[in-house]
Simulated assay, not measured.
Amino acid sequence: MSDDSDEDKTHDPSQKRLDDAHQRGDVAKSQEVNTWFLLAGATLVLSSFGSSVGTGLLVPMRGLLQNSWMIRTDGPGLLLLGKSLAYSVLSAMGMPFLFLIIAAVGGNMIQHRLVFSPEGLTPKFSKISPAEGFKRVFGKQAAANFLKGLFKLIALGAVMCIVLWPERFRLDAMVHFDPSVILGVSTSLTLELLTSVVVMLAAVAIADFFFQYRTWYEKLKMTLQEVKDEHKQSEGDPHIKGKIRQLRHQMMKKRMMAAVPKASVIITNPTHFAVALSYERGMAAPICVAKGMDNIALKIREIAGKHDIPIVENVPLARALYAAVKIDQEIPNEHYHAVAEIIGYVMGLKRGLSGRRT
Rank of each mutant, 00 (worst) to 15 (best):
M252P: 05
L46D: 02
S126Q: 08
L64P: 01
T358H: 09
K221Q: 14
L57H: 04
A259T: 05
Q246A: 14
L79E: 11
G184M: 12
K16I: 00
R245F: 07
A297G: 07
T223A: 06
T268K: 03
D3W: 10
F273R: 04
G305S: 12
S48Y: 02
A158R: 02
F125T: 05
S47D: 05
F273S: 13
L100M: 10
V198Q: 02
K148P: 05
A143C: 12
G56A: 11
L220A: 10
I110P: 12
I311R: 06
G139T: 03
Q66G: 05
N34F: 10
A258V: 01
G139H: 07
E341P: 09
T73P: 00
L193V: 14
V197L: 05
A144C: 09
I240A: 09
M252E: 14
F151D: 13
R17W: 07
P96Q: 01
G50I: 02
K16E: 07
S117I: 02
L57S: 01
T35E: 11
P118F: 04
I206L: 01
P261N: 09
R62Q: 14
S186K: 00
V315D: 15
K306T: 01
F146V: 14
W165K: 02
S88R: 08
A324H: 11
Y213H: 15
P118Y: 12
F177I: 05
G305R: 12
I182W: 07
T122V: 15
E32C: 02
A131M: 14
L201E: 08
L191V: 02
Q329H: 06
T268D: 03
Q233T: 00
F138Q: 03
P310T: 00
D172K: 12
E32P: 02
F116D: 01
L194A: 00
E313W: 08
A285Y: 05
L153Q: 06
Q15E: 07
A276V: 09
R17P: 09
L81V: 11
E341K: 15
I110H: 13
G352C: 14
L44H: 01
R356I: 06
F211Y: 14
E302V: 10
F211L: 04
Y336C: 02
E7K: 15
L247Y: 11
A276H: 11
A274T: 15
K16F: 04
G107D: 13
M93F: 12
A131D: 10
A297R: 01
I296P: 04
A284V: 03
I206V: 09
L277T: 13
H335T: 05
G54L: 09
F49L: 00
Q250D: 13
M160D: 06
K306D: 11
A276T: 13
